Amino acid sequence: MKEKYNVEELNKIMLHRRSIYPYQYEKGKQIPDEVIWQILENANRAPNHKQTEPWRFTVFTGEGLLYFGELQAAIYKQYSGDLFNEDRHKKLIDYPLMSSHIIAIGMKRNETNKLPEIEEIEAVACAVQNMFLTVTAYGLGSYWTTAGITYFKEAKPHFHLDEKDKLLGFFYIGYVAKPLISPSKRKPVQEKVNWVNRHNTF
């Protein structure tokens, strides 16, 4: 069978996709915006039931990173109550500055199609996987986190999300200071697969 695309390269990209954290990025090195747009375009090609396209993105870069850090720190301080931690508060301000771009990931609920919410969340997760793979193909680093203010309902309006929508975390991107060669660890896929090739009786 003749391959339409370079499957070997695709397999290599998937093998080397991994989370690379902001402290591992080259500080102050900016990724061209056109690369970020291509990452988002590939995210926009994710599968989704009934073509609802539920993913929503807010991109922060340049001085926007400082704004994002101060925003999430302020929301955390106001609504964390007894769980407030000063070190965490400081990290919320400083951590974004280590990245080139940060993309807030949202799920826009479309109740007119009567889809289960989980299907919309799954579609957004597929979009994020497309982002991960594209970042890997560019030789960049990325990290999807649900820390910070992800689950604060008060944060939603700041990312153009309504009450019924979901904030699903933040996608950090940057140039990798020290490239990681080894793939992330996984147990053999055979341990997670049931293969049925004949008709069984119940």
Rank of each mutant, 00 (worst) to 15 (best):
F152E: 01
T145E: 09
V135N: 00
T112D: 11
N113I: 01
Y95A: 09
E120F: 05
A147H: 12
T150P: 05
K156F: 00
Y143T: 04
A123C: 07
N113K: 11
F132R: 00
G148R: 06
S100F: 14
A137I: 03
Q129L: 04
E119R: 01
I118H: 07
V124A: 04
Y151C: 02
M98L: 15
Y95T: 11
K90H: 15
L92T: 08
I93Y: 15
D94N: 11
E120I: 00
A127Y: 06
A155R: 07
R109T: 11
N130I: 05
R88K: 14
K108F: 14
S142G: 13
E117V: 13
F132C: 05
G106D: 04
L133R: 02
A125R: 02
P157L: 07
A104Y: 09
T150H: 02
E117L: 12
E120Y: 02
Y151P: 09
L92Q: 14
N113V: 10
R109S: 13
H101Q: 12
P116W: 00
I103E: 12
K90Q: 09
M131A: 04
M107W: 06
I121S: 03
V128Q: 03
H89Y: 11
L133N: 10
T146A: 12
K90A: 15
A125K: 05
N113H: 12
C126P: 04
E117I: 12
E120M: 09
M107P: 02
A125L: 07
Y138E: 11
Y143H: 13
P116D: 00
K114E: 11
M107K: 13
A147D: 13
M131I: 02
F152D: 03
K153A: 10
V124K: 02
Y95L: 12
W144V: 01
K91E: 15
A104V: 11
V124W: 02
M98D: 12
I121F: 07
T136R: 06
E119Y: 00
C126I: 01
L115E: 01
Y143V: 01
M98E: 10
M131Q: 05
N130H: 07
L97P: 07
K156R: 12
Q129W: 01
I149H: 10
T150I: 05
V124M: 03
Y138W: 02
L115P: 06
H89R: 09
E111K: 14
L133K: 03
S99Y: 08
E117N: 10
E120G: 07
N110P: 03
I93G: 06
H158G: 04
D94K: 15
A155Y: 01
A155T: 11
Y138N: 06
G141M: 05
G106I: 05
G139Q: 04
A123S: 10
G139C: 03
N130G: 05
R109D: 09
T136D: 02
E122G: 07
E117P: 00
I93V: 13
T112H: 09
G139R: 02
A104F: 14
L115F: 04
